[in-house]
Simulated scan of single mutants.
Amino acid sequence: MTEGNFVDYVKIYVASGKGGKGSTHLHREKFIEKGGPDGGDGGRGGHVYLVGNESLWTLYHLKFARHIKAGHGGDGGSARSTGSDGVDRYLEVPLGTVVKDKETGEVLFEITENGEKRILAKGGKGGLGNWHFRSSTNQTPRYSQPGIAGEELDIILELKVLADVGLVGFPNAGKSTLLSVLTSAKPKIGDYPFTTLKPNLGIVAYREFKSFVIADIPGIIEGAAEGKGLGHYFLRHIERNSTLLFLVPADAKDIKKEYDILLDELRRYNPEMLDKDRLIAISKSDMLDDELKVEMSVQLDKDFGDIPYMFISSVAQQGLTELKDKLWLMLNK
């Protein structure tokens, strides 16, 4: 999937169908001049459904679907025949899709399971035909009910990436490079900040044909929780990761400070993110010799305490097997 095809935010207008109107027909046939009312009911309007599909990874197929409308119910007929139901519309979405009301921002529901089906807009009920209104005092009612109007709704669909591990780091920390060597993903890589503008997913092949999914989240900057940079646009993708892999380059001026800033941005966006398992990877460590690594480890042991860390190099392929082993243990503890 190319970066341009990854769409995780769309606005859509949806409208369910109107119910059909009831019939006011009076029964007439040879030798029966006054057969009484036999008007049928109107059919219900079509529903608009959202359906989870585990084969989808993006909302790209809905990017240009600005208006989704279900069919209207058919009108009732003679001989108490009911009108046809309106045609339902089914919108397939990837797992992890959040549905919000555009006006209020209220979260309506989330789609998290394959095949999960939820009504987004309910079709209007069909009107009753005049047959229902007959009585001993009104044997030929010439009125019926109109169909009930359908629902109209402006919604926002947001995709929160479903991945086991989320890569967290400042722009240019080497996240895309790491993803490219751990998986078969081909993210855009460059020596300038914000090379990645969309989350990239990759499947890490592990021992004995096991695997797990890792997501390269675009670089966070200080103030992201308040919307600086692309703010929430990036951070919401980390909410569903069970483990967070913090990537801090070995040539950073202050490794602990960078980690603290990243952690604080996550805390300010959603304090529950601090409950996730964390692992710190010191990237670009091929520029460090063994003596310098030992010296840095003494300080890092003090800085990080119980938070595990390791030295890796994506370019030199150093420490990657140990990294996968550690992540697998954290995911399956």
Rank of each mutant, 00 (worst) to 15 (best):
T2D: 14
T2N: 15
T2W: 07
E3W: 03
N5W: 05
D8W: 10
Y9G: 01
V10M: 03
V10G: 02
K11L: 12
Y13Q: 08
S16F: 00
G20E: 08
K21A: 14
K21D: 10
G22L: 02
S23L: 05
F31M: 08
I32F: 09
I32L: 12
E33K: 11
D38Y: 02
G42N: 03
G43S: 10
V48I: 09
E54N: 12
E54R: 14
S55D: 14
S55P: 00
A65E: 12
G77V: 00
R80L: 12
S81C: 09
G83E: 08
D85S: 11
D85C: 01
G86M: 00
V87S: 14
Y90A: 08
E92F: 11
E92R: 09
E92A: 09
E92D: 14
P94G: 11
L95Y: 02
T97V: 11
V98Y: 12
V98K: 13
V99Y: 05
K100T: 06
K102C: 02
T104M: 00
V107I: 15
F109E: 07
I111Y: 07
E113S: 12
N114K: 10
G115Y: 10
A121S: 04
K122Y: 07
G127Y: 00
G129I: 01
F133S: 04
N138Q: 15
N138I: 05
S144C: 10
L153Y: 10
L157H: 03
E158Q: 15
E158F: 00
K160D: 08
A163L: 04
V165L: 09
V165F: 06
G166E: 06
A173M: 01
K175E: 09
L178A: 03
L182T: 06
T183V: 10
K188F: 04
I189Y: 04
I189K: 05
F194L: 08
L197D: 13
P199C: 11
P199R: 13
A205I: 12
R207D: 15
E208H: 07
F209G: 09
D216F: 00
I220E: 00
E222Y: 02
G223S: 12
A224W: 05
A224K: 08
G227F: 05
G227D: 07
G231Y: 08
Y233T: 09
Y233D: 07
F234L: 02
R236H: 04
R236P: 00
H237G: 00
I238K: 04
I238H: 05
R240H: 03
S242V: 09
V248Q: 07
A250R: 04
D251H: 09
K253C: 10
K257L: 14
Y259S: 05
D260L: 13
D260A: 15
I261W: 01
I261F: 01
R268Y: 05
Y269W: 07
N270L: 06
D277S: 14
D277Q: 14
I280E: 00
A281Q: 06
S283E: 06
L288N: 05
L288V: 03
D289Y: 00
D289F: 00
D290K: 13
M296Y: 06
L300I: 03
K302W: 12
K302I: 05
G305Y: 13
D306C: 02
Y309P: 02
F311D: 04
Q317P: 01
G319T: 13
G319H: 09
K324I: 12
D325P: 02
L327T: 04
N332I: 00
